[in-house]
């Protein structure tokens, strides 16, 4: 698979750009969190494309962002559960 570059992305419509980024980061996230991969990818796609591209080139920053997203997701779910039981 050829690397995703800024110029490759720039040639696609905005919605398509997120799709392309999602297709690249999803497999990486799936390795780390198979059950949460879809939601984590969805969260990370809210980040700027330039930062997502950087994260693809730097697995370390992608990994730390994924862990950050997992923490946010778990806090969000805990809050929803608390509201449901209230």
């Amino acid at each position: 698979q050829e690397p995703l570059t800024a110029s490759l992305l720039a040639g696609a419509p905005p919605q398509e750009q997120k799709q392309m980024l999602g297709e690249r980061i999803y497999p990486v996230i799936h390795e780390m969190h198979p059950t949460l991969a879809g939601k984590i990818t969805g969260m990370l796609l809210e980040i700027d494309n330039s930062e997502l591209l950087h994260m693809l080139e730097s697995p370390e920053s992608l990994h730390s962002k994924v862990e950050e997203a997992v923490a946010v997701l778990q806090a969000h779910q805990a809050k929803e559960n608390a509201q449901k039981s209230a």
């Binding site: 799709q19 497999p27 991969a37 879809g38 939601k39 796609l45 809210e46 969000h76």
Partner: peptide, 26 residues
């Protein structure tokens, strides 16, 4: 929307067109 964001975040599925936040709470 009823103000709840219980469906957040939207889920990405490989091969499925990504619609971002439009994926949730139609």
């Amino acid at each position: 929307s009823n103000g709840s964001n219980i469906n957040w975040p939207p889920e990405f599925h490989p091969g499925v067109p990504w619609k971002g936040l439009q994926n949730i709470d139609p």
